[in-house]
Design a protein around this nucleic acid. Structure first.
Length: 423
RNA sequence: GUGGGAGUAGCUCAGUCGGUAGAGCGUCGGAUUGUGGUUCCGAAUGUCGCGGGUUCGAUCCCCGUCUCUCACCCCA
């Protein structure tokens, strides 16, 4: 047997119904906010991720599926989708349109990691990006849209963690402050945190080491939000305006001065939503502003902000009501011809019912009515229509309610309406 | 890349102190050839994850490996 490759999985019915409903809700909500879909290739030049996601990240130096193609090009299966969107923005000179671009995507991403709960090598993300505007209202609107979407899925009690990590201009000063703080506490740092401090200092704020967590939570630990008013008054004003807008829009958020993001391109606003029930991988979505990314990719200096939702994780903790409704879906009718001679008539009947908008599953190859009913029940039909010689001659059908175990004879004329009343 | 747990029938699992395996559910056939879910009878399940070692003999012990799973790392 050939099995699916490590860290990938098949999504089978009826689970695919749930995924489809989630994606349909995303498309619906995002459209309401003026977003359009963008589809970028799963395969990109390796250089794209090196320059955007950043060489200091694990994603780039050990988690990418990259290979050299037959033409000698270094290609990579995208580990995230923001870089691809930014690349397309530059490549197609979208800046020339003189308008903000509000884009969303739904698609597979690939990272070569050890799989665990909520973490796969092939996973799906639903994301949105706004390219152009840099004002706080853009950030706020994006989060309003996000919670509109989450609310539609039935999530309650979720809240977004919010922080500002400053800009490219202020980052070095902040990193310096972090390093000097730890210079006196270096011995409490483990190997991982020592490495972080050297390679990607902001990540130390994310440490799971209790001793380090205590230090980071202590009063004299430098926090970006505290430094912002002096280091970068504009970013500080942006941050404060965003918070005010979120309060006004009733977006549930919590300030978290220790929140940082793993990707190098984030500036100013960063946010994350975590949820219970996902084990150690508890972030269902993350995002932030990336005001320098487009310029880094050779485009015109264009600010941007976006989020990416881990669809696999989202589906994993989806409220039961939404999941149930998606799986049960529209109620269906099974049409069961009793004999071979009844198949033609059954197909005609099925077609006419479908024209009236009824979901019909024609059960062919049934070995007798008993077997046909069994199959109908197993495929989840609500009603079963039995059609044989006797029914054909009388111009009726026998309709069984599979849940109630009742049967009644109904005339062929006006059958669709009669069925709809029973579905 | 590191560490823990697990791999036996389609599914959930039991079992053999080393003598090539069983239950329930499901599937298939029949009782009932135009009416299912109840009941009864019968049948098929499977290189016991894969490879090697020890042994007269390994599903069981040992080693390796793969996959799943949880955690670290990292992140959605």
């Amino acid at each position: 047997m050939i099995a699916s490759v490590k860290g990938t999985r098949d999504l089978l019915p009826p689970e695919t119904r749930v995924w489809n409903r989630v994606e349909a809700a995303a498309r619906e909500v995002f459209a309401l906010y003026g977003f359009d879909e963008i589809r970028t290739p799963a395969l990109e030049a390796t250089e794209l991720f090196v320059r955007s996601v950043g060489e200091s990240t694990d994603i780039v130096h050990k988690e990418m599926y990259n290979f050299t193609d037959r033409g000698g090009r270094s290609l990579t299966l995208r580990p995230e989708n923001t870089a691809g969107v930014a690349r397309a923005y530059v490549e197609h000179a979208l800046a020339q349109a003189g308008r903000p671009w509000k884009l969303y995507y739904i698609g597979q991403q690939f990272r070569y990691e050890r799989p665990q709960k909520g973490r796969y090598r092939e996973f799906r993300q639903i994301g949105a990006e706004v390219l152009g505007p840099a004002d706080a209202a853009t950030d706020a609107e994006l989060l309003v849209m996000l919670f509109d979407f989450l609310g539609r899925l039935g999530f309650t009690g979720l809240s977004v963690s919010l922080n500002s990590v400053g800009t490219e201009a202020t980052r070095p000063a902040y990193v310096e402050a972090i390093r000097s703080f730890f210079s006196s506490n270096e011995k409490t740092l483990g190997d991982d945190d020592r490495r972080r401090l050297a390679e990607n200092p902001l990540r130390v704020l994310d440490s799971k080491d209790p001793a380090v967590q205590d230090l980071v939570a202590s009063e004299n630990f430098p926090r970006m939000v505290d430094l912002l008013p002096t280091l970068d008054p504009a970013a500080d004003a942006h941050h404060r305006e965003l918070k005010a807008l979120l309060v006004a829009s009733k977006v549930p958020f919590k300030e978290n001065p220790l929140l940082v993001r793993g990707l190098d391109y984030y500036t100013r606003t960063v946010f994350e939503v975590t949820a219970a029930g996902l084990g150690a991988q508890d972030a269902i979505l993350g995002g932030g502003r990336y005001d320098k990314l487009v310029a880094d990719l050779g485009g015109p200096r264009t600010p941007g902000i976006g989020f990416a939702i881990g669809e696999d994780r989202l589906v994993d903790i989806l409220p039961e009501k939404f999941r149930k409704e998606a799986i049960e879906g529209a109620r269906r009718v099974a049409v069961i011809p009793l004999e071979r001679a009844d198949v033609g008539e059954s197909m005609t009947l099925a077609e006419s019912l479908r024209k009236d908008g009824i979901l019909v599953d024609l059960v062919t190859a049934a070995k007798g009515p008993g077997h046909g009913l069994k199959v109908a029940k197993k495929t989840g039909a609500a009603l079963a229509i039995l059609l044989g010689q006797e029914e054909r001659e009388k111009g009726i059908v026998n309709v069984k309610d599979l849940a109630r175990r009742t049967q009644e004879s109904l005339p062929r004329l006006g059958l669709a309406a009669a069925l709809r009343a029973r579905l």
